[in-house]
Amino acid sequence: MAIRQRIRIGKGLAWLPAIAVGILLAGCSSTQRDGVSVVDRNHQGAASSTKRQPVTSGQYRVQRGDTLYSIAFRFGWDWKALAARNGIPAPYVIRPGQIIRFDVQPGQTRPKAVATAPVVTKPRTGSSVSSQPSVPATQPAVRPQPPSPAPVATAPASAPSASSARSAAGWSWPANGPLIGRFSSNGSLNKGIDIAGELGQPVLAASDGSVVYAGSGLRGYGELVIIKHSDTYVSAYGHNRRLLVREGQQVKVGQTIAEMGSTGTDRVKLHFEIRRQGKPVDPLQYLPRR
């Protein structure tokens, strides 16, 4: 009896290697299916970057270095609507620890409110942009600003280059180089265009405006500059090696605002976006043909 029992156990154990192999194969197939790499351009804790509609629920606690514009950019809101939703009056100053709410009020399908634009100081007549940043009397930013990991220099206005030829809408190319990534409106993560170039290559302002964000607080964009051109349009310049402008500074089309780099990405390139009332639009429809 003892011998027969050992034989039965032996036969049972003979099946174990096959079962173990099957479990391992199933595990491998599951890992392969679920291990797709996803690039996230949004801040940690934000909604999925595949959604183009503004976040309409929840809240965000202001961090050091945030501005109203950077928060609106991050969560897909028009800055005027976000200010109105949270009762933030001009000059739109926010402070660390302040709560920004995104829930849409009853009767609204999406944010439509309009607020007064911030007052910005223009350069004096007959003078070029100074080597020192022109700080507006009312600057919509969180203060004090955190220390930057890299020294920030201020770029003087430069003569328009070949890239500064304007389109009929007044926009110019932000950098020289081949186009390696296009805008997609089908839920893709690319909300702008990507331009390849050399490390340290000049990044240019695509139109006249005021710098409303300069920092690295938005994950996936690296060292980022956001320029406000009007109450309707802002533009964004990501993955820079070094920023050459400060928040509140006035810039002119074709002015060097940064050096191209690879912060927040895997190669040297410029990620460029244009947003109309907070919504990403195809930059190629605004830039001149080349």
Rank of each mutant, 00 (worst) to 15 (best):
H229M: 05
V114A: 11
I71T: 06
T263I: 04
G261V: 01
F75L: 09
P91W: 05
A137F: 10
W79F: 12
R182F: 04
R289S: 15
Q44N: 05
Q139K: 07
S216D: 15
A72Q: 08
R52Y: 11
P174C: 03
R64T: 15
R242V: 01
A115P: 12
A14Y: 05
G22R: 10
W79Q: 09
Q105Y: 04
Y221C: 09
A2D: 14
I100K: 04
S49Y: 12
F102G: 05
R52A: 13
A168D: 11
P147F: 09
I180G: 03
P136H: 03
I226S: 03
G27I: 13
Y213I: 13
P174D: 01
V253R: 13
V251D: 04
S128Q: 14
E198C: 00
F73L: 06
D282A: 09
A90P: 07
G222I: 04
V253D: 08
S210G: 01
G10R: 12
I226C: 01
Y60P: 12
R64A: 15
P280N: 11
P288E: 06
Y286C: 05
G238A: 15
P280S: 13
T56G: 08
A113V: 06
L218S: 00
V21G: 02
G264H: 06
R241A: 07
G261T: 01
A83R: 10
T50Q: 15
E273T: 04
